[in-house]
């Protein structure tokens, strides 16, 4: 009997937490399809005002350029980051020696450096190098991250040395082994790394806020943050903006959810 009560309690608790987790997102999606007055009245049913909200949003802000920028920055950043960090992780593990292990532990220290402490000198460096308002300016500080290098180093540890030796005998170059052997075998690590990097790049807010001064260079998070600056809020179009800013990461998350969890498992081990 007590077990039944306990089980019921557990399911009840999990259900409440799950609903609370999803509710704000459901409310956002519903608000995006309703008139602002109805949102204020507290409606929880999807409405028919989506097209009007979309027109309002377009008149308030340049959604197209911001969306393009966000995709451009995030995709370029992800590709560059995966290449640079996986090469490094592979290099640190496969050719490891005392000096390289030492370099790795110094790199790990960079994890502890808060962004606020590097932000001002970075801004000065980037403005004298004319990198403000540019894609390169957005991605450079986030291409190489200790977390990703560590993740790829862990996965290279499980990459069999026999394969490398066999490939060397077959006359494959070292870089060839990396691209033709390591890359296809470690697909799930790459998928996890891709999820993490894309989400971080898409959601990055402080750095673009510092360097993207031109309104044609701004990102989606910056755009929706600007929408709230007026005195009256049009909840319908605001929530549609929030919805548009959220949907790409949610899609990536659903597509790669499994490998994301696997990737984290790899990093925790």
């Amino acid at each position: 009997m007590t077990r039944k009560i306990r089980n019921f309690g557990m399911y009840f608790f999990l259900t409440v937490v799950s609903l609370l987790s999803v509710f704000p997102l459901y409310w956002m999606a519903v608000a995006a399809t309703n008139k602002s007055v109805d949102v204020i009245r507290g409606t929880l049913i999807p409405g028919t005002y989506l097209v009007e909200n979309f027109k309002n949003l377009l008149s308030l802000a340049k959604v197209g350029p911001a969306m393009t920028n966000s995709f451009k920055y995030a995709i370029v950043c992800t590709l560059a980051s995966l290449l640079v960090c996986s090469l490094a992780g592979y290099g640190f593990e496969i050719y490891h020696d005392k000096i390289k292990d030492g370099v790795m532990s110094i790199i790990l220290l960079a994890m502890m450096v808060p962004f606020a402490a590097t932000m001002i000198p970075l801004f000065q460096m980037f403005s004298s190098a004319h990198l403000l308002n540019s894609t390169l300016g957005f991605i450079l500080p986030s291409i190489s991250t200790p977390f990703l290098i560590m993740m790829f180093r862990q996965s290279a540890r499980s990459f069999p040395h026999d394969i490398i030796e066999a490939a060397r005998i077959d006359g494959l170059s070292e870089i060839g082994i990396f691209f033709k052997m390591f890359f296809p075998t470690m697909r799930s690590t790459y998928a996890a790394a891709m999820t993490i990097t894309f989400m971080n790049a898409w959601n990055n807010y402080l750095w673009p806020k510092v360097i993207m001064m031109d309104e044609n260079s701004i990102t989606m998070p910056m755009l929706i943050a600007n929408l709230t600056e007026g005195y009256t809020t049009d909840y319908g179009s605001l929530m549609l903006g929030v919805f548009l800013c959220t949907i790409p990461t949610v899609i990536i998350f659903f597509l790669l959810q499994k490998s994301f969890a696997e990737g984290i498992t790899g990093a925790v081990k």
Binding site: L87, Y95, V103, I107, P121
Partner: peptide, 21 residues
């Protein structure tokens, strides 16, 4: 080869984290 593989990442971390620090 090992050094060539890890240098871009290490250099970026030095320039983007340690130098600004």
């Amino acid at each position: 080869t090992g050094w060539a593989f890890l240098t871009p990442a290490a250099l970026l971390i030095v320039i983007m984290s340690f130098v600004p620090m």
